[in-house]
Nucleic acid binder design. Structure first.
Length: 875
RNA sequence: AGGCGCGUAGCUCAGAGGUUAGAGCGCCUGCUUGACACGCAGGAGGUCGGUGGUUCGAGUCCACCCGUGCCUACCA
């Protein structure tokens, strides 16, 4: 437990502060001192209860940090600092997400290279000084080396910014999502899943990005509104009998395997089980019934293609239809022979001729072409009717997703839907309403999680396949890596029982060519940081972790997947609390993000407003709430920090007589001092409760309000007395109160403004404020000899009366435009009887603070009347 | 189309059923006061999105509506 020095204790020999305190240079000074003294170093305690562990989001290193990062990472740091002051050993590592597609793209552009896995490794490869055009092809190991090289540079810059911001991270504990340890953990969890049948591979229709040429997961989809058109197409039912269907994708007519209508739709009931003929290609397809068909949409009957959208996949699966794929992995139409079994055309020559014009085209170009063909053949009814509709995109992609049949790895998710929803309810969400997003997502899942990606820079699947006599992989005989071997790269490592020379040759082996979805690694971040499975002691005292802080847009990915993995591997939640930060919005209320070009670089902000100023702005954003980017708030924060410097200097100046050796409890005797101390004690309770509920914004707001009131009213009121105008007892009471209040307020501010509070703390206290104990109300109230309700109420009445008088007199002085140096001759204070006698307890303070020569007191309706100013008389 | 937020001063926001709805920024008027002019004092500025309801009492609770944002769904 951090120690709490006696509140009113002040060692004059220790006391030291500058004449003109300033914020400039505090960041550099304290960053290096904190590093030297290791205040934020995690020291392992014996008990889990003494730890607060945080699963920090690893920022993507491929970009640069922006104000959104400053915002949300500050929120986490507030909690970390609070918990540290509460006596917890804070386990607060930092990760770098350098894995995956964004890094690949950045490395490609930065160095002007492309990965060509067929090339051999070139030792000591150096990229050209200037990115060449066209890009240089490099081997996969060389490409990965470049990824590692660039991310290392990026990570240094990131760390420097985080340190400047004052994050209380233990910088001896960093990890990278592409690092050895992250790879080992990802692969190990995967092997465990595999052994238990929770991971499987299958050849199936998969969401596919035709530019990146990789499978993607449902969680990586986004809808975009795109222009499109309904095309009404005729399918031949018999001589001179046609069925009209509407489609937005006429280019998929060659992939049509059936028509479908709702089973209750009387218009089409007679047709169920019959066959129709596709236009242009003359392929016979059945008319089927399925409840997903919407009678109100289009003509009420739809074409099922393999595969136009996710609904097609559902129909295809549930109606046991054949596959007739035309879109290939690059998005173009593949070669099709119209005279093969399963694809019999009534007019193969015509089918081949029509299709020949489409083959090799992209879907968009093929669409234009086939519309011409349909118009010429008379199968297009009317003209296409333009519409705007939502189309599924890979969130990082530029062209609509296709659905392509390919072999992919999946992790079972669907069968755990209910269990996962229960986990979501078990998790403590801040704010609570974010839980529904988790539940919505779980309820909307339509398949298991596809975790394989056809990319290069990622964690490989730790499996190989035997090759048969023809050199084809035998996927059902996958050879998993040994657990003690991990991490492995199956493209360079060799499975047990084989030699390298057998790679790729018939009867030999081949490594799995794919890498894991970046979320497959990120989702085991708790296991990675907590030392699983090697450091059992660390794991025991840190897992399940206390806190996952993150943004709301990745609840469906990072948070959901993490819950899934921990549920499968440990039968527990990965953490007990999730704190969800909002976004930073630009002045037009749009999310700030790099792609929108509206980001502000954080380092300049930190320099201009100070880290404390920037943190102040960030801390004013409540959990889960999107917050406008507002440099004005940073200025306010900076002013607050300056005010803390100056007010602290005043409180500590201590130039007035203090009786040496007075015991703390006896010191605080004046009614206004006692009232202020009690109010501060109430603030401490409120702040502590708010922090326990993750409502850091409230803590800051309440503390700030109190502090300004303290400066404007209390300090002004006691200024003369603390200089000795009323003798040694009064001065002692004021000084003891100032010292105690300063100690408590600094500690309340410490999580928010770590630099200025540490600076002031160092003027008069040993050690770091960030290791000092979070204040308690008891520390303060124990300083009061008599703490009964009666004295509490009367003290409070005195303080409030003093505030009323100050307000009234200041108002009068302002209205009369009188400088403060001109004394007021007389002020009459009327009050009701119960309050009236207490006026004499503050009379001397008020005379001094307001420059009033004389107070007359009378019973009556409350009123403060200023008689006149000395200058009036003279003038 | 469902779900979840949000709507309070010109701006950013706080108001956890109970005096006359608050703060900061900005604006206006003063003041170099012994911690601070990066300061201090005072002031102007609100039919709390709308309509109904519950209540002795509603910015706060309920219903509906409007606006706005996000999540999810739809995609023939």
């Amino acid at each position: 437990m951090p120690s709490s020095p006696r509140l009113t204790q002040l060692d004059p020999a220790r006391l030291q502060f500058p004449d003109k305190p300033a914020l400039e240079g505090l960041e550099a000074k304290w960053i290096s001192r904190w590093e030297e003294s290791g205040v934020y170093r995690f020291a392992r305690p014996a008990s889990r209860e003494d730890v607060f562990s945080i699963d920090t989001p690893p920022p993507t290193v491929s970009g640069s940090l922006h104000v959104g990062h400053v915002f949300s990472f500050t929120h986490t740091d507030l909690i970390a600092r609070y918990q540290r002051m509460r006596g917890k050993a804070v386990f607060y590592p930092m990760g770098w997400d350098d894995n995956g597609l964004p890094t690949e793209r950045r490395v490609q552009n930065y160095y002007g290279v492309r990965c060509d896995p067929s090339l051999p490794y070139v030792p000591n490869f150096q990229p050209p000084a200037q990115p060449p055009k066209p890009p240089l092809s490099v081997s996969r190991p060389n490409f990965i080396e470049l990824c590692e090289r660039l991310t290392l540079e990026d990570e240094k810059i990131f760390e420097q910014l985080w340190r400047t911001l004052g994050l209380s991270v233990d910088w001896s504990m960093t990890y990278a999502t592409i690092g050895k340890r992250a790879q080992r953990v990802s692969q190990l969890v995967f092997l465990h899943h595999l052994k238990r049948g929770l991971a499987y591979q299958v050849e199936a229709p998969t969401l596919w990005d035709i530019d990146f040429k990789t499978a993607v997961a449902q969680a990586e989809l986004e809808d975009r509104e795109m222009p499109g058109a309904y095309h009404r197409i005729k399918f031949r039912l018999g001589p001179d009998r046609f069925i009209e269907i509407d489609t937005t994708r006429p280019e998929l007519i060659p992939a049509c395997v059936a028509l479908v209508a709702h089973p209750d739709d009387a218009r089409y009931q007679p047709l169920f089980g019959q066959e129709v003929e596709t236009p242009l290609f003359g392929v016979k397809v059945p008319v089927r019934a399925h409840t997903l068909a919407d009678p109100a949409k289009g003509s009420g009957i739809a074409m099922i293609c393999t595969f136009g959208d996710i609904t097609d996949v559902t129909w295809w699966r549930e109606l046991s239809l054949p596959v007739r794929a035309v879109i290939q992995t690059d998005g173009t139409l593949r070669h099709v022979s119209w005279n093969t079994p399963g694809l019999e055309s009534t007019d193969p020559d015509r089918a081949q001729r029509c299709y020949g014009e489409l083959q090799g085209l992209s879907a968009a170009k093929a669409r234009v072409k086939i519309v011409e063909q349909l118009r010429d053949s008379g199968d297009l009814v009317g003209e296409p009717r333009p519409i705007t509709h939502a189309v599924k995109f890979y969130e990082k992609g530029d062209r609509p997703l296709e659905i392509v049949t390919s072999r992919q790895w999946f992790i079972k998710t669907i069968e755990f839907r209910e269990a996962l929803i229960a986990r979501g309810k078990e998790l403590r969400w801040h704010p609570e309403y974010m839980e529904t997003r988790f539940e919505n997502w779980a309820n909307g899942l339509n398949g298991d999680w596809c975790v394989s990606r056809q990319r290069f820079f990622g964690v490989p699947f730790p499996v190989w396949y035997p090759l048969d006599a023809q050199g084809r992989p035998e996927y059902d005989k996958a050879i998993p890596a040994r657990e003690d071997q991990l991490p492995v790269d199956p493209s360079t490592d060799v499975p047990g029982g084989y030699r390298e020379e057998q790679r790729g040759v018939p009867g030999g082996f081949a490594g799995d060519p794919d890498v894991m979805d970046t979320w497959a690694t990120s989702s085991v971040s708790p296991q990675i940081v907590c030392g699983w499975p090697d450091d059992r002691e660390l794991f025991r005292i840190t897992f399940p972790m206390d806190l996952r802080p993150q943004a709301h847009d990745i609840i469906r990915t990072w948070l959901f997947d993490s819950v899934l993995r921990a549920h499968l591997e440990h039968d527990s939640l990965p953490w007990t609390h999730a704190a969800i930060s909002g976004w930073v919005l630009d002045p037009d209320r749009k999310k700030m993000s790099k792609s929108k070009g509206n980001v502000v670089t954080p380092l300049a902000l930190l320099e201009e407003h100070g880290s404390d100023g920037a943190r102040y702005w960030a801390a004013s954003g409540r959990p889960g709430t999107d917050t406008a980017f507002d440099p004005g708030q940073m200025k306010v924060g900076r002013r607050l920090a300056i005010k803390i410097l100056n007010a602290s200097k005043f409180a500590l100046m201590n130039s007035a007589p203090v009786r040496p050796g007075l015991q703390a409890a006896a010191d605080i005797t004046a009614a206004v001092d006692r009232a202020m101390v009690r109010n501060l004690a109430a603030l401490v309770d409120e702040a502590t409760n708010a922090f326990e509920g993750y409502d850091y914004a409230r803590v800051l707001q309440r503390t700030e309000t109190f502090f300004w009131g303290f400066c404007d009213d209390y300090l002004e009121l006691v200024k003369g007395r603390r200089y000795g105008e009323q003798g040694i007892e009064g001065a002692s009471s004021a000084n003891a109160t100032l010292t105690a209040a300063l100690s408590v307020m600094l500690r309340l501010f410490a999580p928010f403004l770590p630099f200025v509070t540490e600076e002031v703390w160092s003027w008069w206290r040993e050690g770091s404020i960030h290791k000092a104990a979070w204040p308690t109300a008891g520390e303060l109230t124990s300083l009061l000899a008599d703490n009964s309700d009666g004295t509490s109420q009367s003290d409070q009445a005195v303080y409030e009366l003093a505030q009323r008088v100050m307000f009234a007199v200041r108002k009068d002085r302002s209205e009369k435009k009188q400088p403060l140096k001109i004394p007021i001759t007389k002020v009459t204070v009327r009050e009701l009887q119960p309050v009236l006698p207490s006026f004499r307890l503050v009379e001397a303070d008020l005379k001094s603070a307001l420059r009033v020569n004389q107070f007359d007191v009378a019973e009556g309706q409350p009123e403060v009347v200023v008689d006149g100013y000395e200058a009036d008389r003279e003038g």
